[in-house]
Design a protein around this nucleic acid. Sequence first.
DNA 1: CCAAGTTATACTCGCTATGAGCATAAGGAG
DNA 2: CTCCTTATGCTCATAGCGAGTATAACTTGG
Lengths: 321, 321
Amino acid sequence: MQDTAIPATKRTAMTNQSQAVSADLIAVVIAVTNGEPRVLTIGKPGALPSGPFELGHRSLQSGLRAWVERQTNHPLGYVEQLYTFADRDRIGDERVQISISYLGLTREEQAERSPTHGWHGWYDYFPWEDHRAGVPPILPDILTPRLLAWADDVEDPSMRRDRRQRVAYAFGLDDRDWNEELVLQRYELLYEAALVAEAARGRDTSGAPALPGRPMIADHRRILATGIARLRTKIKYRPVVFELMPPAFTLLQLQRTVEALAGRLVHKQNFRRLIEQQDLVEETGETMSDTGGRPAKRFRFRQAVLAERAVAGTKLPLTRA
Amino acid sequence: MQDTAIPATKRTAMTNQSQAVSADLIAVVIAVTNGEPRVLTIGKPGALPSGPFELGHRSLQSGLRAWVERQTNHPLGYVEQLYTFADRDRIGDERVQISISYLGLTREEQAERSPTHGWHGWYDYFPWEDHRAGVPPILPDILTPRLLAWADDVEDPSMRRDRRQRVAYAFGLDDRDWNEELVLQRYELLYEAALVAEAARGRDTSGAPALPGRPMIADHRRILATGIARLRTKIKYRPVVFELMPPAFTLLQLQRTVEALAGRLVHKQNFRRLIEQQDLVEETGETMSDTGGRPAKRFRFRQAVLAERAVAGTKLPLTRA
DNA sequence: CCAAGTTATACTCGCTATGAGCATAAGGAG
DNA sequence: CTCCTTATGCTCATAGCGAGTATAACTTGG
């Protein structure tokens, strides 16, 4: 909606010889398959679909859709803008690159495997973010000690305190709770502490210990972190989970999807209560008897809620375990 | 933090002959003076400070700061990105303009009046958004009837229902509550219904009735609406109000500022309870005996909270009246 | 100095939302 | 038929929040 083009009148800027820049569109496309959140990538080394904004594109969003579909043959559903940033090309080039990143939600098509693109579980990139089976060992075993060591590795005591506090806050140390939304803050701390491969680029890393999580091209992993954080925040107040669900589903399937995204478990009964009392779904009439238990009713998303309260809420009960 | 420059490696895009575009930075700079929220403008007709992103700028944000300070001599404090959009220059030009908008918060300097810039109450632009003294007459008297007329002015019954529903939702009709965050949705509905001057540009408006709210250049009013909406949302979960406060203030002053932003009144006692129990402020020791009542303690923002919980919460009790 | 008006502050009440469990229902696998 | 597993229904206790009552502490006009 923000993407609507309103003709610009005379520019009010003082100069008009504005610098020529190029604009790139980058997509974080998410799907959840078998209870695992996955991200759409292209090429071998793990890169997000992207491409330059071109004259033929009607709007930024449609340009993005065009690129994703061209590179992956995968149509996009829900799309929202994430963040815009600028990189100076590294050789002190006269060219400035502006990247506009987007979050997209779809369902992974079962068909077509392709060499040009693929889906990867997002916890491959962020293994410390999955707390569904409890605190992942990588945290207490590797990351926490190294982060604390990094925090202490500075002379200025106030800066040391600041680092400790940021680490403790972002990673839920001491008595603090784990906050699943702080994906970006955690990644940035790890980057600062040179605990992700991307931070070591250009440095000599021979003989250094392996760093956790699969790296990505350029700053794509940071962008992915931004997308995950946004999605984890958003599912709490907007009915976007349904973009990731098939047309009909059981409440447990819905719950598993939410848990996959949030990286933590929720209380089953309370989850159902919340979903039902918000009238987000309606029964299809069918029932599912697969998973070896009492058959579950199947539901579908009540499309009407989008119109009724485009902004209302999908609250989620988030528990420890 | 997102603005950090990480060197981009080889572009993964399929083509590299990326379209030359120009990038503009636009600022929505807000201050609250005497219980009135104001926006920083330049030039006569009401335009937001803006200017092209240039090579000399270290980052998008610093470019924005440079422009605002150059155009208004006003230093910026808190800044966050709002939205990025693209306009095709209207004459089917080969040039595409990308605009990156920001929200900035400061305090209005008492000194220097300048012809090059000025502060304007934001309710001049959005008179229907101020509900502090109850529902503004312009709504029931003018806007609501015209919006409903617009909604009915379409053949397709499902589209008519959709329009009615959107209007009712955005403007809190029927039994619905007024939601102060829907600033952008309301503006867009008014635009669609041609009830704001910007929508009538290029059309013949001779003899048409006056439209509510002061218009702005190009789509600047829409951008302002985006900024207001973001701020109204954000004060509810981040301690950003304090960016708008003087170093020391009474709780009532703080409350008035919040009310000015939200456009609605809050329950005084509950407001205090919330602020205090969150440890957002600390007493300065001084007391203020101005406003003809019992003297109020003065408080200052506890800067520590920014470190303690960079994300925590500043909940606001929002009541009807 | 007193009365009235105004703002500051302290508490109390009642309801709702939400975190946690307990209990029962309804299938499938052996 | 028994055990296991998942689905569903209900209860309970509490924290948080919307509202309202009751004082306290000044200022200002007689």
